[in-house]
Design a protein around this nucleic acid. Sequence first.
DNA 1: GTATATTGGTCAAACGTTTGACCTAATATC
DNA 2: GATATTAGGTCAAACGTTTGACCAATATAC
Lengths: 337, 337
Amino acid sequence: MKKKRISITDIANALNVTPSTVSRALNGGGKVSEKKRNEILALAKELGYRPNPIAKSLLENRTNTIGLIIPEFTHHFYSRMLAGIESVTSEAGYQLLICTSNENQAQEIKSTQTLLDARVDGILATISKMNDKFEHIQEEMDSGTPLVLVDRFSEEIETPYVISDDFKGAFSAVDYLCEIGCRNILHIKGPDNLSTTFNRFMGYKEALRKHEIELKEELLLESSDTNLLEKIRFCLTNHQVDGAFTYSDYLAFEIYKVASELNIPIPEQLSVIGYADEPISTYINPTLSTVNQQPFEMGAFGANYLLNKINNPEIALEIKNLETRLVIRGSCKGLEG
Amino acid sequence: MKKKRISITDIANALNVTPSTVSRALNGGGKVSEKKRNEILALAKELGYRPNPIAKSLLENRTNTIGLIIPEFTHHFYSRMLAGIESVTSEAGYQLLICTSNENQAQEIKSTQTLLDARVDGILATISKMNDKFEHIQEEMDSGTPLVLVDRFSEEIETPYVISDDFKGAFSAVDYLCEIGCRNILHIKGPDNLSTTFNRFMGYKEALRKHEIELKEELLLESSDTNLLEKIRFCLTNHQVDGAFTYSDYLAFEIYKVASELNIPIPEQLSVIGYADEPISTYINPTLSTVNQQPFEMGAFGANYLLNKINNPEIALEIKNLETRLVIRGSCKGLEG
DNA sequence: GTATATTGGTCAAACGTTTGACCTAATATC
DNA sequence: GATATTAGGTCAAACGTTTGACCAATATAC
């Protein structure tokens, strides 16, 4: 059984003063003599008094809690983001209430409700992949609870965002491939209807344009393609592919597989760049070049942003595009060609 | 600004009844006519009434919240465990309050205090690697808040545990290596003073004993060894090592590195088994055999255990040893070999 | 010596909810 | 027709804390 914790009233009774006096002694609101103050402080310490935040919450209509909804925990990207968030919130003295959507909108809706019910002071969320309903978000915003969305963007929701600059990230990768001499650069796109998929593709296109390389439809694949491996094989065999840029690191590994099968050496004949900088990238052989999205910083930035918004509701609606970092490893030829 | 949510009193005033009546109408405590009940329910729905759990918590001295302390988020093991925990708690209608210790005991102590202050109904924790103080845990237990420890065990703390059966897990791995004919099996131990390190080593020893293989000191390394790579190299060169069992998958990859350097083919000349089944194991070449600890199930089991303990404080103190699963992949010869 | 300010407190309301005790009017029992 | 029961409610306390309003006693100003 949870023991009854000692309360301000207990202390007050023990010393024959009123709870108000004890409260003021503890919080320094004046109106209490030095002598009484010391008595009270001493007894509070002796009894191990700890204020009850529940009571305070009820009174102040704030919980010092922020709610988090993420699609899942197991992707390295989200764990790192979570770590970034936690570092900021714990530093600021906020609690973190966590829900997951499992990329499932029904669960996302339920989580939103749960967090609103819990009276969190603000919500940090990454919307799930499958999204076609937005009423719950609208309800969230109507409630006056600050909302900051991270990682994924949706035209339908007008609220502050903290996202990674996918366009520039992809551009820097493909630009690098061009610089080292690649001319037939394969791209594997991500899932449909994600802003990230679109933006990375646009970055790819823009880099080709810059280097005056024609975009070839036959070098475009999609992660959802049935028989993706076979399509990669066809591509590598017939189109003199000398570079590849993929939506994710895992898709890059699919290219590794096919290349090894076809005895195409990486990076000598084929330079590969993935996306996300999964830790595995440094263990695979050859180590994978990739675009690091700095998820920790993203989470930290988002959390800071939200805390600001909580304490200053008039803060401007902003879409913050965070810089990425191109990480070149063994899967790419060097710059000298 | 967070909007004032509508309360039971608001409804009561609007309908000229007392809050008690509204409460009873909503919670079905009788004492309210069908007609009034319907009126109240209708208005509550129309106004979007949602009960305030803060007020309820204050009254009932329970928060429907459980606190979690984990060493870090980014290890796959902990993310999976977290996912398991979340699946159970959310299903049971409990909130999850998350803290991290960063493997740092000072922070662990602070987190414990934070969670107790928040009046969580129970705590689920993995103690940090560096632990020599236990007062905070004692204080936790004295508070009457149920505590369940997961993953790591300590002699000093008497409380329910949910841990993975490291002994059996290691035994099954080394037993397998013996079965396929390995006779000189290298073992790389984990960090000192972790129960897992000890138990996996004991499993290794027991398997050797079963197969009447002598334990050779020169085949034992430690993850903390300076110049570990060099020591592995020495071992592989001079001791006809034909099998390796490591405390973690990452240590197994170190063996991969050295083996590739020395042109020792895996699995033809050297069979390797790691521990933890990190996702990377299936991407590396050859794919890594490993011991899966079923972290999701572990988290789920721990959460269930804690919820039981919350609702029935008299539950027996138990140390639950969860089964592991040996996963054989490309890094081991087959059984016929 | 009167008016004013200061010190050190108390009182009560408020936050939103639940719940046991109480009340009243109608109905049932004999 | 007197009494007991019941249905349908109200009242007030309780959870722990904060805070504005109030009050008495003392100190200060002139």
